[in-house]
Structures are given as C-alpha cells and as structure tokens.
Amino acid sequence: MKGMKIDEFLKSGLLEEYVLGTISESDKAEVERFIDENEEVRAAYSNLQNNLIELAQKMAAVPPPIVRKKILDEVSNLEKGSKPGMIRRNSGNWKWLAIAASFLCLLYYAYHRMGTLSKQHDDLKTAYQQLKEQCDEGIKEQERLQANMEIFGDANARPYGLSNSSLRLNMVAYINREAATTHIHVLNLPELPVNQCLQLWADIDGEMISMDIIPDHPGEIFKIPYRPEASSLNVTIEPKGGSEHPTLKNLIASVTI
C-alpha cells in the first residue's frame, strides 16, 4: 500500500474495510496515516460512517425488552466485581436438576427407612417425581443434541444451504457420501397459508423427484432418501399434501450438489 496515491487509495476498498474493522493490522496503520494526512480521505471516511449509520437504520430491529434488563444486570454484576454470569436461556439446567434429583432421592431413601409415613414423605415423593421427569427430559434433549452432532460433526457430511432471503427460508442439507445419508436441518420457514406446504425435490437426470414434504417445525432435522445421482436439491411451494410434479413457478430455493 505504500506509495499509493489518494485516488488509488479511495478506490481500493480499504477505507470500507477500515470503517467496519475488517482490515488487517498491517494495513490499519497505513489507512490511519491516509486519514490523518489528507482532507479528502477524512471527508470520505466521515461520509462512509454516515452511510453506515443510514444502512444500520434501514436494517434496525428492536430486541425484546428482556434483553435490556439482562444487559444492565450483567453490567451491574461486573461493576460490583462479582463473577460475570450471563443470564442465559435454560440450556444446561438438566445437570443441576439431575444433581438435585439425586440428592432428593437419597433423602427419600433415608426417610423411608425410618418408617415415617407422613405428608412430608408424600410431598417429597411428588417433588422427586417432578424433578426426575424434568431430569429425564433434560437427558432426552441431550441425546437429541448428541444425535444431531453425529450428523453435523461427521467430517464426511457436507452442508449445502437452501435458502431464500425474501421468504426467510433457511435450511441446510447435510449429504454424507460415505454413510450414504442425507439429512435436512430446518432452521427457518416462511409463513404459508394453511392450504400450502413446502416440498423438496431432487433433480435426477433432468427429472424432479419428490424427496419429502418439509415439516412445518423449525429446528427439526429429518432424513430424506439418499440419491447420489441427484444434481441439485430444490424447494417449491405446493398445495397441502404435496404434488406429484413440482410447480416450477413456485420454485423458491435451489442448490447444486
């Protein structure tokens, strides 16, 4: 970058990278030198920052009110010098529930041995049952996540994005040629009228073969037939229940495999 003229510098895209902090450390000092030494570059930099604000305003989305409380609580904790602890959603709670359930189980056993059949005993038993159920749910959730990780974490599973930004469709197909499997991870789905559904198709030798109806459950992972000869995967909007042949004018996402 050394020896670059102002005009050349302004055309380089470096200023945009600097504004957004994506520039390398080695180029950063040079960009700052240009800004410090040239009025024209300073004006361009200021203009870019204003454009950035304008762009962000166009993209603005108000976060849920709870986020404000969480952030201010967190900062208060930091200020007090207490151990930072993010107030997260309840992931991981099952471990504590498991510990609590084990503890209650011991209590229950000791209590039972003493032969005291009282209301407290019943209450304890109920509490234990409730905690055990929650614990079991946590374990099931963990097993589900582990199963997902086996799909995503397999180095042979190659991801292919199937998305449509304007309809907010976002899915990923994981094709594993070693295991001969294809899984679809549904991340986000458009809101469709009740009489419509999304259908997945594989292009096999120029013919669209139906793979499945896409379940209306974001977050779900489902398996479709493995078709190694397919050249692409495609998503169309179809009448509820699906169609025998794709409605091509309703093709909303496609990815070449």
């Binding site: 762009l55 166009k58 989305a61 990780m149 397999d154 991801p159 994005g161 998305s163 449509n164 304007s166």
Partner: peptide, 23 residues
C-alpha cells in the same frame, strides 16, 4: 466449527429484511 464444516451460501441469498431497500 462445531457443526463440522462451514455452510456454503449462495451469494444471491444474503439475508435482507424485506423492508430494507438494500435488497
């Protein structure tokens, strides 16, 4: 990294809100 590989995105599918003129 956790999911084992990067997600390949079509560059025509960059997420943009519908109300954004940036579309």
């Amino acid at each position: 990294k956790q999911s084992g590989a990067e997600i390949h995105k079509e560059y025509s599918n960059v997420y943009i809100d519908e109300n954004l003129s940036g579309k």
